[in-house]
C-alpha cells in the first residue's frame, strides 16, 4: 500500500477520533432545570433585579451572590466564587458556568453582556445639557 494512503487513512481516523472526543466538551446553553440533572453547565438568562445582590469584599472577596432568571423564567440564587464583575447591574444578559448545589447555582465563571449603545446616548445627552 502506498504511504500516502496510510497517512491519509491515519489522518481520517484521527479526525474522527478527535471529533467524537471533542463532542463531549460541547454543550448547549442550559436552564436551571437542566442543571439539576447535568454535571457542569452554562446557563444563560437575565438578572433578577427584584432580589438582592450580595457582595462584601471585606468579608470574602471571592464571594458574590445574585439572583438570575433563566430562559424559562425560573429564578435561582447564583453564587460566584470570584469578585463581583464591573458594571454587573447594567448587564443585559448573563452567562454563568457551574453546577447546581441543592437550590443554589455555584458558578465558577460569569460572562456579562452590557448594552453597548449606552455610551453613545450618554455622550450626546451630556452634550445637550
Amino acid at each position: 500500500m502506498k504511504k500516502t494512503y496510510i497517512i491519509g487513512f491515519l489522518c481520517i481516523a484521527a479526525a474522527i477520533g478527535i471529533f467524537f472526543n471533542a463532542s463531549s466538551d460541547v454543550s448547549t446553553y442550559a436552564t436551571f432545570a437542566d442543571a439539576q440533572v447535568r454535571a457542569k453547565v452554562k446557563v444563560t438568562g437575565t438578572l433578577d433585579l427584584d432580589k438582592e445582590f450580595y457582595y462584601d469584599p471585606n468579608e470574602d472577596p471571592n464571594y458574590f451572590s445574585f439572583h438570575m432568571l433563566d430562559n424559562d423564567g425560573v429564578s435561582r440564587k447564583v453564587i460566584l466564587t470570584q469578585p463581583k464583575p464591573q458594571d454587573f447591574e447594567l448587564s443585559e444578559q448573563v452567562v454563568v458556568t457551574g453546577k447546581m448545589k441543592d437550590e443554589v447555582f455555584v458558578a465558577s465563571e460569569v460572562l456579562t453582556k452590557c448594552p453597548s449603545k449606552y455610551k453613545d446616548e450618554e455622550l450626546l445627552l451630556r452634550a445637550e445639557t
Binding site: P61, N62, T81, V106, S108
Partner: peptide, 17 residues
C-alpha cells in the same frame, strides 16, 4: 481559610482583600 466552604475546589479563590 477565607472560603466559605461552599466550594470544593479551594484553588478557585484567586484573590485576597
Amino acid at each position: 481559610f477565607a472560603q466559605r466552604g461552599l466550594v470544593d475546589d479551594e484553588s478557585l479563590s484567586k484573590v485576597i482583600s
